[in-house]
């Protein structure tokens, strides 16, 4: 899986660029590059549903973010290094890596998942739902409540955007 490593390292470089570039428009575009890399990763890791969805979602979120930044006056960021925040971030990073290294010993290694429920779904899926795409069968049949909750969250966020921007006046 050398290609997954390579793309992941490229994603990390893109993330560093997105974080450190001063110009906000370039920063947003660098974040888009990270998202496209994630879409490629999904394709390599055999998740084509996610690759399609991530690609189109990335385009839309890039449009939204550019819409937010393009008209704005770019502030020249006076970089006052907040030394307290920096120390806290480094401490958190060290603790996080330490505990995650402890936890990773308990996880199954890369490439050999447990698949307690997944193998059941794969064995019974076609007979019980009639759908060939197992991801569709899971999100819409076996785990429909998840999708119902997702629809609720999306509805809430749309209501939130419309309420914050308050554009219900003057309809054509």
């Amino acid at each position: 899986m050398i290609e997954v490593h390579v793309i992941l390292v490229l994603m990390i470089i893109g993330a560093i660029a997105a974080i450190e570039i001063e110009d906000m428009l370039s920063s947003v575009i660098a974040m888009g590059a990270v998202g496209i890399g994630l879409s490629l990763q999904f394709l390599l890791l055999r998740a084509p549903d996610l690759a399609i969805t991530q690609l189109v979602v990335e385009i839309l979120s890039l449009i939204i973010l550019i819409k937010a930044t393009v008209g704005a006056k770019m502030p020249e960021e006076k970089f006052k290094a907040r030394i307290g925040y920096l120390i806290f971030a480094l401490l958190f990073a060290a603790a996080f890596l330490f505990f995650s290294e402890q936890a990773l010993r308990e996880l199954p290694g890369f490439g050999s998942p447990l698949m307690k429920m997944g193998s059941e779904y794969l064995a019974e899926g076609l007979k019980k739902t009639g759908a060939a795409n197992m991801v569709s069968a899971i999100i819409l049949d076996f785990r429909g409540y998840d999708t119902l909750g997702e629809a609720t969250v999306l509805f809430t966020s749309v209501i939130g955007v419309l309420a914050v921007l308050r554009i219900m006046r003057k309809r054509a």
Partner: peptide, 16 residues
């Protein structure tokens, strides 16, 4: 097959 369950969860997570 790879495990379909994380894929189904992440599919909703992306849109959220």
């Amino acid at each position: 097959f790879v495990d379909p369950l994380p894929q189904a969860m992440i599919l909703t997570s992306i849109v959220i």
